[in-house]
């Protein structure tokens, strides 16, 4: 087990909790809107951005955010204006971003910088700084406020975008907001979880919560809880095994998802008797 100073341990644990919260909260919308691949795209955009930052000696967090937002800004309008499926646009942007990331990595000077680039790729417990924590904390509060204030609109859009629009909800605004906040969440979690795996923290906890609940509100509550638990167990696993933290978190969240699939009450067939008795599952 790695020996680390208490202050650093505290920073890292708080970082893991906050990253788990923001990613898996956004995951609820990303999974429901069938934009799972947006996770790959955003994380690779952030990764390319971080590599770009290292290349030009700028804070990689800032450059990662710029790239993620760039993708968020392009993705929505491009898929709407070009009348392309979101997933087609995501696939296109994903490939461009990964290509750019490798180009930038190639130009990073010095071995130390290459190590920093790899930490962005795999994630590292030690790379979470005070600024990252403050940004993550701020984003967490903004997300809670955003969801509480616009819950009815978000629920309407998540159920059916066209119906929500027909009821007078500005669906475009909420679609772009989801892209925007996902970009934020990915960029800020990048240093901890790593560019290659951060999307798993968006998808897995939500997919796990989906196995148990029919109530959107409960999924909104339990997805972040599962995300935080995954991050904390992954963090502990990383400490005792010296695995990269991103990989540990993803292994834990994937294991929870696999277990959820097996025991999911939603997947069990109702028998006639239960139906007759009006038995309800987790409602």
């Amino acid at each position: 087990m790695i020996d680390i100073p208490l202050a650093l341990l505290f920073t890292s644990i708080l970082g893991a909790v906050l990253a788990g919260f923001v990613c898996s909260t956004m995951g609820v919308f990303v999974v429901r809107m069938n934009l799972s691949s947006i996770g790959y795209c955003m994380s690779h955009a952030a990764f390319a951005g971080a590599a770009f930052g290292l290349m030009i000696s700028v804070d990689s967090l800032i450059s990662a955010m710029v790239f993620s937002f760039g993708v968020a800004f392009v993705l929505g309008p491009l898929s709407e204006k070009a009348r392309l499926e979101s997933n087609v646009v995501i696939g296109f942007l994903f490939s461009v971003m990964i290509a750019l990331a490798f180009v930038f990595l190639n130009f990073i000077p010095g071995q130390a910088a290459s190590g920093a680039a790899l930490r962005i790729l795999w994630g590292s417990i030690f790379s979470v700084g005070y600024n990252d924590l403050m940004f993550l904390l701020l984003l967490s509060f903004v997300l809670i406020f955003f969801i509480a204030l616009f819950y009815k609109e978000l629920l309407a859009v998540m159920f059916h975008r066209k119906l929500a629009e027909s009821a007078g909800v500005n669906t475009k605004l909420f679609y772009f907001a989801v892209l925007f906040f996902t970009g934020f969440s990915v960029s800020l979690s990048l240093r901890l979880v790593g560019g290659l795996l951060v999307f798993a923290l968006i998808i897995n906890p939500t997919s796990t919560a989906y196995q148990f609940f029919y109530d959107f509100k409960k999924i909104m509550i339990f997805s972040p809880v599962i995300g935080i638990v995954s991050c904390l167990i992954g963090f502990w696993l990383s400490l005792i095994t010296d695995f990269p933290i991103g990989a540990s978190i993803v292994i834990v969240s994937a294991a929870l998802f696999a277990f959820a699939i097996i025991i999911s009450p939603k997947r069990r067939k109702w028998n006639g008797k239960q139906r007759k008795m009006g038995f309800k599952l987790n409602t």
Binding site: K152, A156, F159, A164, D215
Partner: peptide, 28 residues
């Protein structure tokens, strides 16, 4: 507006009352 019949995922995480309420989202 009642849209033409569309397929709904049997595992969709929405309760009937919430769907009815979602109709009021714009009006509220």
């Amino acid at each position: 507006y009642v849209i033409q019949n569309f397929e709904i995922d049997p595992l969709a995480p929405f309760l009937s009352k919430d769907i009815v309420m979602s109709g009021r989202a714009g009006k509220i």
